[in-house]
């Protein structure tokens, strides 16, 4: 055996200490990856939307019917049956429920996406972020359309139009970023811990009651208000309500600031998690 080994060129090169710990990736290559990234997300999203709607208007209606029915039923129950006395309750509920449905559906559909697409991720050098972001963007598109489909008639009916609606894009960008970052982190976690999806589903069903979605935040006792402010979804919902319901700019800065802090913190945790666990994630897929 020694003989055969010596015949070929021995591959154990002298251990060059200087090249240890250096991982070179071409800068040019990284640039190229970034420019290609957006086209990949764009195409994947467009095709995902196509496959969901089956290229017809009725298919599109089917997708937005679920949140519309949920909204109608809740608004009927709380206003007509439980008789919550709030001016323009339908507008109030809209600002809370629709962003909630968007975040919830993004998590629900986005968390298992890496494990269900493992054949693709292991088969080709596809950036996992492309798959997750395209799912969140698809849901975001549905959210915006559903939101407008409900908002325009509701505002017209209640005559609650205001120029404050112009702050909506800020809320939309922040809720998109929050949903993306959370889904990315949890879908990575779902690769290592396969029951993450169920645990998140359980936590979200509890959070639905702990977040002021169908009740005003003011009714929570003073000493418990701190917990409310530790809930990132509360701040995002308040941004929407500021624009469509309360018509006030006074708390816009505060809620924006806190939301950005949450998104930044979660983003940096996700990035660190990905950097340290990348190999294990591929290994476990």
């Amino acid at each position: 055996m020694e003989d055969i080994c010596q015949k070929g060129k021995r591959a154990n090169y002298t251990n060059n200490k200087s090249c240890n710990n250096i991982i070179k990736i071409h800068e040019k290559e990284m640039m190229a990856i970034q420019t290609h990234f957006f086209r990949q997300v764009y195409l994947q999203t467009v095709y995902k939307i196509r496959s969901r709607y089956r290229k017809t208007w009725t298919g599109f209606l089917w997708v937005i019917l679920n949140p519309i029915i949920l909204y109608s039923v809740q608004s009927f129950i709380f206003q007509m049956v439980l008789k919550i006395e709030m001016p323009h309750y339908t507008v109030f509920l809209l600002g809370g429920l629709l962003p909630w449905i968007f975040i919830n559906s993004s998590l629900d559909m986005g968390i298992p996406i890496l494990t269900s697409s493992s054949h693709l991720l292991k088969g080709l050098p596809v950036n996992p972020l492309v798959l997750i972001l395209s799912q969140v963007t698809d849901n975001f598109f549905n959210f915006i359309v559903t939101f407008l489909v409900i908002l325009i008639p509701v505002l017209t009916f209640t005559n609650h139009w205001s120029l404050h609606l112009l702050t909506m894009p800020i809320s939309l960008v922040l809720v998109y970023l929050f949903a993306s970052v959370t889904t990315i982190f949890l879908s990575y976690l779902n690769v290592s811990y396969r029951d993450t999806k169920f645990v998140v589903g359980f936590v979200m069903s509890i959070m639905y009651f702990l977040t002021p979605i169908f009740y005003p935040p003011e009714i929570i006792p003073e000493n418990l208000q701190i917990f409310l402010h530790l809930n990132p979804i509360f701040h995002l919902i308040e941004l929407f309500r500021g624009a469509i319901y309360e018509h006030s700019l006074s708390k816009l800065g505060y809620h924006c600031f806190v939301s950005i802090i949450f998104i930044g913190a979660l983003g940096s945790i996700t990035y660190r998690y990905w950097r340290s666990k990348k190999n294990d994630i591929y290994h476990l897929l």
Binding site: N20, I22, I23, K24, K28, H119, L120, K122, G123, P125
Partner: peptide, 27 residues
């Protein structure tokens, strides 16, 4: 570039294409 090595140096050209046996379709 799907995995990051703990140590070492890798230089590959920009137009690198890797195909593994797992892949069959996207959606």
């Amino acid at each position: 570039h799907m995995l990051t090595p703990q140590h070492g140096e890798i230089n590959v050209p920009e137009k690198t294409r890797a195909i593994f046996s797992h892949a069959n379709c996207v959606d």
